Simulated scan of single mutants.
Amino acid sequence: MSRKTGRPSYVRQAELDRKRRVPLAATIAGIVVAALAAGLVGFLVGRPDATTRAIDDIKAAEAQRDRDQITSLTDVARSSQEKLTTLLTGFDAAVAGGKPADAATIAGWQQVVKDLVAAHADSPSGTTATNVARGAFRGAIGDFQVAVDLYAAAVAGPADRQPALIEIADRARTAAATSWSVAAAQLDQINVDAGFGHQHVYLETEQGSGAFTADGEEEGHTGG
């Protein structure tokens, strides 16, 4: 009877190699799957959710709305500045000269400030800083209207009381100009903050003690 022989050594070696490769392949596959899973989790974690994106969109829309409001307010303030400068030049000359302005001139001043009150009546809701500037301009225009009406009443009143009443009207005019300067300073700042650079709408006439004046920066300059 022939002697039994085992399987050739090279066959056994091949089986051992296969057994080694199976766990190795499984390990590599596990690493790949884990890496892919980790990447997916990282993407999902880092990606803003719907609520966050919605909040970001709202903030962006609000920022653009405020920029639009700042631009519109600056345009209205600049137009008002030009009209007030003309009005105050005549008003100050009449007060300083000691000769009251005539009725037609005074009526013209009253119409100017009435129109400016209407121009500043719009009150859309914006950021606090923009609302402060808008409200300050509206208040200053109202004060100018009071000053002009006081002057009109002084001129129409008894001659012996005119000097004292005109002096009161002039003080009211100075207070109004000071209020305007505060509004102009606020407008300048919100323009800089919005990236539009300095925008100066300060009155070009004498504004009285305590008034803000232009800071010397060039129009549109975004620094300082």
Score class of each variant (00 low, 15 high):
99 K>N: 13
107 A>G: 06
105 T>N: 01
86 T>Q: 00
120 H>R: 13
152 A>S: 14
112 V>K: 01
157 G>L: 13
155 V>C: 01
77 A>W: 05
86 T>A: 10
97 G>I: 10
157 G>R: 11
131 N>V: 02
116 L>P: 06
80 S>C: 09
84 L>Y: 06
141 I>A: 00
81 Q>P: 04
109 W>H: 11
139 G>D: 15
126 G>R: 11
125 S>I: 13
128 T>S: 14
110 Q>L: 10
108 G>E: 12
101 A>G: 05
134 R>Y: 02
102 D>L: 02
79 S>F: 08
82 E>I: 14
88 L>I: 04
108 G>M: 05
157 G>W: 12
156 A>C: 12
116 L>Q: 14
80 S>Y: 08
131 N>A: 12
143 D>W: 07
131 N>I: 04
134 R>D: 07
126 G>V: 10
108 G>K: 06
90 G>Y: 08
126 G>S: 15
130 T>L: 03
89 T>F: 03
125 S>E: 14
99 K>E: 13
119 A>N: 12
83 K>R: 12
120 H>E: 07
89 T>V: 13
93 A>H: 03
93 A>M: 01
110 Q>F: 05
74 T>V: 05
126 G>H: 06
75 D>C: 01
138 R>F: 04
140 A>V: 14
100 P>K: 08
143 D>P: 03
140 A>S: 15
89 T>G: 15
91 F>A: 08
89 T>M: 07
137 F>W: 08
121 A>Y: 00
153 A>T: 14
151 Y>K: 03
117 V>S: 05
146 V>N: 12
136 A>W: 03
120 H>L: 13
157 G>K: 05
155 V>L: 01
100 P>C: 09
76 V>L: 04
109 W>V: 14
